[in-house]
């Protein structure tokens, strides 16, 4: 299975997926840390996190998959949402909570 297919399976097979640097407990980057905090603030207790620092193939592959040059990257129900700036903006205007609602209620 190539890397693109592997990423596709991960983001479509899980409700909320965060590609980040480090782990939710020990983020290795301020932007990744902020992304985790926002998901927590939205009440998302269980999300799938992928540490891109642990796998250089994923680190590059995720940028190619979404055509987005930076990490963290958030996916909800298989759809690319954005990085931490976009998460912040969408959290502040309530759009992120709305997009997470079906996942939180259904899973």
């Amino acid at each position: 299975m190539d890397i693109k297919e592997k990423i596709h399976q991960t983001v479509t097979g899980n409700g909320v997926v965060l590609y980040m640097k480090g782990s939710p407990q020990f983020p290795q980057c301020g932007f990744s840390s902020r992304a985790v905090q926002i998901l927590n603030a939205c009440g998302v207790k269980n999300f799938t996190s992928v540490d891109v620092l642990a796998d250089s193939e994923v680190r590059q592959g995720i940028k190619d998959y979404s055509n987005w040059p930076t990490v963290p990257q958030l996916y909800i129900a298989g759809e690319f949402v954005g990085g931490s700036d976009i998460m912040t903006e969408m959290f502040q205007n309530g759009e992120l909570q709305k997009q997470l609602e079906p996942i939180l209620n259904g899973a």
């Binding site: 980057c29 040059p69 930076t70 949402v81 990085g83 976009i86």
Partner: peptide, 22 residues
């Protein structure tokens, strides 16, 4: 927001690969 950020990244182009880490 996603589209606005994509426009910025597209304009920055190759700078995102090396000169700009974040």
């Amino acid at each position: 927001a996603l589209s606005r950020h994509r426009l910025v990244y597209d304009a920055l182009g190759s700078l995102m690969r090396r000169e700009i880490h974040a």
